[in-house]
């Protein structure tokens, strides 16, 4: 991403969304078939469970130039693997606080629970996250340049 492009109108945030196979990915699907509008800024990566997503993966996304990251899984209690999202919840709560402590802007990392029935919710969350990231501008702090 060209660093100066924030100043012209062309810059659009690039957001990587890690969606769990069983709920949020299906939620995204439902948003699509139900024709709910949401910004085209997200690039979806399907993962088996939000519990699969480790901090390594999130940092890798930021390092490779993502302006924001969204991780979404099943609501607590609905996990296909019983408790994957409950472990993930602790992991993300700590990690989000931690990297914001080190100076990553709040809003770069976003987490949510979206079920397979919540197509509309999905569209709203993506809209919210996109606006949040847009307000922050292009990511700079953990982007590797060589």
């Amino acid at each position: 991403m060209d660093k100066t492009s924030v100043h012209n109108k062309e810059w659009e945030p690039k957001i990587i969304a890690f969606l769990c196979n069983w709920c949020s990915y299906a939620g995204a699907d439902l948003a699509g078939v139900s024709r709910f509008q949401y910004p085209p800024n997200i690039r979806i990566i399907r993962v088996p469970c939000s519990g699969r997503v480790s901090p390594n993966i999130l940092l890798d996304a930021l390092k490779s130039g993502a302006d924001g990251v969204l991780v979404s899984g099943c609501h607590p209690g609905d996990c296909h693997y019983i408790s994957g999202n409950l472990f993930a919840r602790r992991r993300f709560a700590l990690f989000k606080r931690f990297i914001e402590f080190l100076g990553i802007e709040p809003g770069r990392l976003n987490f949510s629970w979206i079920s397979a029935a919540e197509g509309e919710q999905f569209a709203k969350v993506v809209t919210e996250v996109t606006e949040r990231v847009r307000a922050l501008g292009p990511a700079r702090r953990l982007v590797k340049e060589i």
């Binding site: 969204l70 602790r90 987490f111 949510s112 629970w113 996250v129």
Partner: peptide, 8 residues
């Protein structure tokens, strides 16, 4: 567990 960090 607290989950006030979630986007709603």
């Amino acid at each position: 567990d607290p989950q006030d960090f979630l986007v709603t």
